[in-house]
Design a protein around this nucleic acid. Structure first.
Lengths: 126, 126
DNA sequence: GTGATTGTCAACCGAATGGTTGAGAATTGG
DNA sequence: CCAATTCTCAACCATTCGGTTGACAATCAC
């Protein structure tokens, strides 16, 4: 096989992977209220400090969090740019769910058309 | 307490995990143009059909894709609702990047204040 | 019916992930 | 200086992940 290696994961790879964990999402939520030290971020979770530190490192690697070392404490702060990128990526698909809502809306606005929950299979639109 | 994610956590887990892979994101992009069979979805990638099939299954498990079995072909289509959920989750953080833009904007509107590039040159971290 | 097409499934493999523990570095406080 | 606090690092472990191959079920085309 030509390329069996995992080359140059994109930024979105890291961001979405970081977001795919409830602990890390909760840490982001905590950071939404302001700066937090590593211990403060770790405190709500039933895991070792080293474990939480790994999560923070992965948030940092994804560019979602920056760290400010002040003496022996590491102050973490939310870095929203990469979240904005992910948000923007998802926005591309916005038309699909708004279209769907619009279609439902249009359907409901036609009182003369009988709305049947019939299991008509996707229509023979082919 | 914001509790902006009363959407069952595991759902976001699966959605973000599914999005954290470039193959799966490309498949979604392909599905944005319309229905695709499994082979059509697999064709652009240098991997076995079974490999691509696994990716599609994970998209399906995340609720991002639905399947319509038509004879021997499986027609896949985009299912946008879970994408909308992820988009909405990210929207909670929108104020952080808009605030930042507003702050930059305000700063640039003050010609008497000297603008110094703040401490760390972390713009290009790769 | 025969044979090709379409796709899944199971087993397997190496690498990454999420967690632990223990050791140690660096800073702070008395 | 000594002791406590804060945090990282390395090693380890079980599980998951992304990929392969080979076998097989189902459907279509002839």
């Amino acid at each position: 096989m030509v390329e069996h290696m995992h080359i140059a994961g994109s930024r979105l790879d890291h961001v979405f992977h970081a977001l795919a964990d409830p602990t890390r999402r909760a840490m982001l939520q905590s950071l939404a209220s302001g700066e937090r030290t590593v211990s403060e971020l770790a405190e709500p979770f039933a895991m070792s400090l080293a474990g939480a530190s790994k999560h923070i490192k992965s948030l940092e690697a994804a560019g979602l969090v920056t760290r400010d070392i002040r003496g022996r404490q590491h102050l973490c702060r939310l870095q929203p740019d990469r979240l904005a990128e992910a948000h923007e990526w998802l926005s591309f698909y916005e038309r699909f769910w708004t279209e769907r809502l619009d279609a439902l809306d249009a359907l409901l606005r036609q009182p003369d058309r009988e709305i049947v929950p019939s299991s008509e299979p996707k229509g023979d639109d082919r």
